[in-house]
Amino acid sequence: MDVPNERSSHERPILRGLGLAVLIAMTVSGVVAVIALSVASAGFGRWDLLLLVVIGAFAAGCLGLAEDLRGLSVGVRSTCLLLIAFVIPVALVLLRQYPLASVDFGFVGGSFLGSGAGEFALEPLPFWVTIALVPYAVLFISSYINVANFMDGLNGISGFHGVIAGCAFAAAGFLSGLTWLVLAGLILAAGFAGFLPWNLSKPGAFLGDVGSYLLGGATAVTSFAALLAGVPVLATIGPMVISFGDVGVTLVKRVRAGHKWDEPHKEHVYQRVQQLGYSHVASSSMTAACTLAASLLGLASFFVAPIWWVALLCGGLLVLAGYLSLPRLLGGRAGAR
């Protein structure tokens, strides 16, 4: 049971840990999708990349489950996060250079010549790019798992985020011809869509750390894998802009105010909106609407020349600025009433 504490926005104990069901559903469907890709007679693409996405999400979810059941020290939890954020990206970089899915094992699709052939038409990465990508991935993935955990503070907010991020990745996969990315996105979206009714109906239930770590891991690993596969960078980060911005700005404000960054609090933008008198669903929906807008701006990069990506990036930052201003804007209106 989740007992209300300093960072809680609920007022009574509520069942937590339902993210375990999402973890099981996403893992099973992910394994089925990997097998389906590997045996597809027409050769639909990179089952090896999808497999790593499934493994990365599963590892993150299991770490969250351990935190829920037993509690982990900061050192152990941080070490495990860094291991996940190092091993999975290194494996993804290696598979980009040497695709396992192009090897004929006899029981899989072999060297694909069908609709997935374009997924192998990637130039090898320069050595310096490979070296730079690994530390970036470690920081990016480990940070976002924590970010997703920090943002899991209202009914609906994580479920909406998972659905939007998953749909955005599926759309990016469709636009870039990457079947594995379409499947990864749909699995993410479906997993958290299935959780929403349990979260939003009475008496309600929470994801717990198992679900928030799963959301962060699945989103970040899918984003990095898509970047390696040639998806425009703005499309890979669009679903994550609002969450990164909320957590980053809130932590900076707290440090500047003399607070410890890791102390429990209720100062995130979405929490401050809810404290103005808006319901959990209303506040979560505002966050989701901004996440959707940033995701659509990212997907727009498929349709314009790279020279216009700066304009799309500025648009995303404007959306973030509007989101960060919500407590002040909505508070002013409440005061006027």
Rank of each mutant, 00 (worst) to 15 (best):
M1R: 11
H10G: 06
P13W: 03
I14V: 15
L18V: 07
L20A: 13
I24S: 05
M26A: 15
V32H: 00
A33N: 03
V34M: 10
I35L: 15
S38C: 04
A40L: 04
A42W: 07
A42L: 12
G43E: 04
L52Y: 02
G56M: 05
F58S: 10
G64Y: 03
A66W: 10
A66T: 07
R70S: 10
G71P: 09
G71R: 10
S73Q: 07
V76T: 12
T79V: 06
V87Q: 03
P89V: 01
L92T: 01
Q97R: 07
L100G: 00
S102N: 13
D104A: 08
G106N: 10
G110K: 01
S111I: 00
G114Q: 13
E119T: 06
I131L: 15
Y136A: 15
L139F: 13
F140N: 08
S142A: 15
G156T: 01
G162V: 04
G166D: 08
G166S: 07
A171N: 04
A172N: 08
G177K: 15
L181Y: 11
L186S: 14
W198A: 13
A205Y: 00
G208Y: 03
G208S: 12
G216L: 06
A225H: 03
L228H: 09
P232M: 05
V233E: 10
A235D: 10
P239S: 04
I242F: 05
L251T: 11
R254A: 04
V255G: 01
H259L: 13
E263Q: 15
Y270H: 14
Y270N: 03
R272T: 05
V273G: 10
V273T: 10
V273H: 05
Q274E: 06
G277Q: 12
S279G: 15
H280T: 03
S285Y: 06
M286W: 15
C290D: 02
S295T: 11
S295I: 10
L297K: 12
G298S: 08
A300L: 11
F302G: 01
P306C: 08
W308A: 14
G315H: 10
G316A: 06
L317A: 10
Y323G: 06
A334S: 09
